[in-house]
């Protein structure tokens, strides 16, 4: 068990000394997850709002598909995105394989169902009185829609944070699309997998600590927002 204790001591030393390789993986993770969250929100919130707010033919089957995709395995997403952006794929000319934008696109696909489904649930769960109140105060259709989204803002933020948590902690997509290239596409999770394979626990533990801290931050924010909503 000594090697674990030694690994923890070395990990703290790495973090305290602002080790460049460790912080490169942390920054890459934050860059990729932020990019993927921005893309998934810009697509997912309007789609989720539409799915939760409007009644239209085919709404239930679409909802079922989105809910099913919540459990989509990361390696399956990795496989499809790889097939599309590899040199032989239809998007091969853009050279996205083994790049940060490539990983971000795959993560966007991975977390999009979370954003859509939880946003739709947030809108569907709105108090029935919201609509009547807005109408009785004189709001028009577009104003009712906008105010409804604002009323659900805390629940929508829960969707955002849940999606962020999924993005920073996934390993399959980052490994398959990013290739775990040192100083370039190596993320916290792929670095932990690699270092553990090599028997180098110190960097793995250091990155694990950072990942856990991020997870605590995400969960803390979730608990706060749940209380507010």
């Amino acid at each position: 068990m000594d090697y674990l204790a030694q690994g923890l001591i070395d990990a703290i030393r790495l973090l305290m000394s602002l080790d460049e390789e460790t912080f490169s993986a942390i920054l890459t993770t934050l860059r990729i997850s932020s990019l993927s969250i921005l893309m998934s929100l810009s697509i997912g919130i309007p789609c989720g709002f539409g799915l939760g707010y409007f009644d239209f033919p085919g709404k239930k089957p679409i909802r079922s598909v989105v809910d099913t995709l919540l459990a989509m395995p990361t390696v399956v997403v990795g496989l499809f995105v790889y097939a599309f952006i590899s040199r032989r794929g239809p998007l091969g000319e853009f050279g996205l394989l083994f790049t940060i934008p490539g990983i971000a696109i795959a993560q966007t696909i991975l977390v999009l169902p979370i954003v859509i489904s939880l946003t739709a649930t947030a809108i569907e769960s709105l108090d029935r009185r919201v609509r009547f109140t807005l109408i009785s105060l004189g709001a028009k259709r577009s104003q009712i829609a906008l105010a409804s989204l604002l009323e659900a803002r805390y629940a929508v933020l829960i969707a955002v944070i849940t999606a962020y948590g999924r993005a920073i902690s996934e390993v399959g997509v980052s490994m398959m699309i990013g290739g775990n290239i040192k100083w370039n596409t190596r993320t916290i999770t792929t670095a932990i997998a690699l270092e553990t394979g090599k028997g180098q626990f110190s960097m793995g533990i250091a990155l694990g600590i950072v990942l856990l801290l991020l997870a605590f931050l995400v969960n803390g924010s979730l608990a706060f927002l749940r209380k507010r909503s």
Binding site: R129, V130, F132, T133, S136, L137, G138, Q143, A147, E151
Partner: peptide
């Protein structure tokens, strides 16, 4: 529609400040 307004039995306040709640009807007009 805008000439008639109802205060329901259990009124719903928007998740905003009192000022924004009271001003909402004027703003949408």
């Amino acid at each position: 529609r805008r000439q008639v307004t109802i205060l329901p039995q259990e009124p719903y306040l928007l998740k905003r400040t009192v000022f924004e709640n009271v001003a909402y009807g004027l703003k949408v007009r």
